[in-house]
Design a protein around this nucleic acid. Structure first.
Lengths: 241, 241
DNA sequence: AGAGTTCATTGATCGGGATCAATGACCGAC
DNA sequence: GTCGGTCATTGATCCCGATCAATGAACTCT
């Protein structure tokens, strides 16, 4: 069973319309609109495929349909997942620098990729668009910082609890005072995101299950029964003195 | 002996002039310039002081003089340094949310703080400014992602080597084919930035010294003799196939 | 539906970095 | 200078999560 399934076929204008609804300001000039539409490179990828191999220039990618992970590749098969991006999200994918980045589909995806430099040049004449992009980049920065806290100072249990709470807020659906979560990513993806191993992820999920905080069904469905206690176990920074 | 010493006194117009030179576009309208100057709250802080306690709203802070660290506070005295910001840098300091943030002076500092919402509102009419801010926020995001890689997938030795190389690029001065580094932060700050303990930092520095890659003098001076080998030990992600 | 493959779970052992403890170096104040 | 306090280094031990190994569950394909 597959959730968040991508439509079998979507035309490019339909995809661009999703982008327009999600990102563009109401009062956008027609000329800029058309230039933006011409600039966008449309792409689709099946589950597991790399949407965008690390290129020579920064990209701004709009995820129209599906779910993706932004991955940094390390020496010796080490991988770090820098973030998950879902339908409606805007991702900044850096060019290959000191490290190498790829955007990888967790499910069948449809996306629009813009070369960052041209995108910003075009956006300079549209303050509303530039502002919207800035807001979303600040949001990415905020989440990246949260990840730094998680990776730098949290125990395995706190990391997994934190992950579940965060994902619930983004893609969960309320259910009986708790929250139902269909995880589009594998245990390996979680491990690579949290700086742990799949074995540790599995053990911590078992522990949370035995503590009665979550229930699981199959590989990808998690029911957060007790979000309050779970949040407490996430070791969120306290409102200290 | 103190490096990067702050001038004994700096007038507010002088500080704002630094901000103008570093951030503002050439063709900025006078009206916007004046409103921006009125919006900025000037602050100074001595070494070790919190410049900006976590407030109720996001702040955009320009570091005019000195050096700072952005710190997230965790339950149980745990702290995570999210980044270091030096003279000329622009920092986004989030309001207290799930976590609590403070900007803390590593040396005597002088800064200009803007409420983020009003700042962006004002910047909407100045595309050049908005664009400059966006570029700098993207840079912060990029560094934050690098930190995620470091915290998630690197060994203690790689983290310390990585830290030295990165700092050298930002505040080092070339010397005899290597690089001379005056670190404004303590071992504790390094530890809190790298997700390690001060003891581990110390041991790794010793190891790098015995390997002939660095020389140290006092607490804060590090001479990177062999940047190439150091970079190799930093475990930077390879340009893998 | 059954076979095959991938993915997740559970158990046993190992090791890197944390923790605990003590000494030593640096820096500021007088 | 030297006195005092803070900060850094070094050593001994411990523990959490990694690693190695095997079983079991879930999804895919025909």
């Amino acid at each position: 069973m597959q959730y968040h399934r991508a439509p079998a076929t979507t035309t490019f204008p339909e995809l661009f319309e999703l982008f327009v609804q999600a990102i563009l300001p109401q009062d956008m000039a027609d000329a800029a609109y058309l230039r933006l539409q011409a600039l966008g490179r449309y792409a689709s990828a099946k589950s597991g495929e790399d949407v965008l191999a690390d290129g020579d220039e920064d990209q701004i990618v709009f995820v129209a349909v599906g779910a993706t992970k932004l991955v940094a590749h390390a020496s010796g098969d080490r991988e770090q997942v820098l973030g998950f991006y879902f339908a409606g999200d805007l991702v900044s994918v850096p060019a290959r620098g000191a490290h190498s980045y790829t955007l990888c589909a967790l499910q069948d995806c449809e996306l629009i990729a813009f070369p960052a430099a041209e995108f910003f040049e075009l956006a300079r004449s549209e303050a509303g668009l530039l502002n919207e992009v800035l807001v979303r980049v600040l949001d990415s920065l905020s989440r990246s910082r949260e990840k730094s806290i998680t990776l730098g100072r949290k125990t395995a249990q706190e990391r997994v609890a934190s992950f579940l709470v965060t994902m619930a807020a983004r893609i969960g659906t309320p259910l009986e005072g708790g929250c139902l979560l269909h995880l589009p990513m594998s245990r390996r993806d979680m491990a690579d995101s949290l700086g742990l191993t799949i074995e540790t992820i599995s053990r911590q999920l078992t522990e949370l299950r035995e503590a009665g905080l979550i229930e699981t069904s199959g590989r990808s469905v998690v029911h957060l029964c007790d979000s309050a206690t779970l949040e407490a176990r996430a070791g969120h920074l306290c409102a200290a003195a």
